[in-house]
Amino acid sequence: MISIRDRLIFTGQLLFTLLVAAFLIVPAILSMLAGVTVNYFQGIRSGVTLQWVIQVWELYADTIARSFVIALSALTVTLIVGIPAAYALHVRGGRLSRVVEEIITLPLAVPGLAIALGLLLTYGGFSDFRRSWLFILAGHVVFTLPFMVRSVMAVFAAIDVKTLDESASSLGASPWRRFLDVIVPNARPGILAGSLMVVTLSLGEFNLTWMLHTPLTKTLPVGLADSYASMRLEVASAYTLVFFVMIIPLLVAMQIFADHKRRQGAGR
C-alpha cells in the first residue's frame, strides 16, 4: 500500500542522495581517468596511456616510499606508546586519567598548522633533527596517537577489561604477564581498527607535513601539492591515482572491519 506521495518522496530523496554521491565520486573518477588519458583536454578519445603514471613513478617514487616508512614508523610508535597508555588510563580511571585523555585528544582539535608551527619553533634549531624525516614522524605521531588510544580504550570499556585483569591477577599472573596474556589479545579489534586509522591518516597527512618537510623529506601528499601547482593536469591526476590505489584498500579494510563489528554487536 504505497501511496503516490510516498513514492514521490522516496524518489526525491533518492535523487538528492545520488546527486550528493555524484558530487563526491565524479571528480575522483575524473582524476583517475585523467591520469591514464593521453590528453585530458581532448578527452579519453585521445587514447589511454600509462606514461603519466610512469612519469610520476620516476619523479616521485621517493615520496611514496618515504610516506610508507613514516606511516609504518608512526604505527610502530603509536602501538608501543598507545596500547600501554590506553590500558593504564582505563584501569586507573579517576580525574587525572580524564585530564590526560583530554590532553592527548587535543591534537584532534588544534589545527595541524598550529602544531607544526609549535614544533618548528621548538625544534627548528636542532638542525639534524629538523632536516630528517623523524621530524615529520614526530608530528604524525602526535596527530595519530589519539586515534590509537581511543580505539583501544573503546574496546577496554566494552569488554570490562578491569575484571579480566583482576581475574588474571587472582590466578597469579604478574602485571606484565597479564598485559601480554590477557590485555593485548583481548584488545585486538581496537588495535587493528586503530592501526588502520593511523596508517591511513599518516599516509594522507598534509597540514603538518607541509610545514615540517624539507626538499629532501617530501612525502606523498607534499608531492601531490607540488604536482598540483607545477605539473600538467595529467601528471597530477596520475599521481592522485597512485594515492587512491594506496589508500583505497585501507579504506575498504576499515569498512569491512566496521561492518563486521556492527554485525557482531547486533548478534549479541
Binding site: 575484571t163 579480566l164 583482576e166 581475574s167 587472582s170 590466578l171 597469579g172 599472573a173 596474556d181 590477557v182
Partner: peptide, 19 residues
Amino acid sequence: PIERRNVGMVFQSYALFPN
C-alpha cells in the same frame, strides 16, 4: 599483591578470558 597470595576467585561476571 593478589598475584602472590595464592587465592582462587570467582567473579560475579565470571571474567573468563575471551581469548
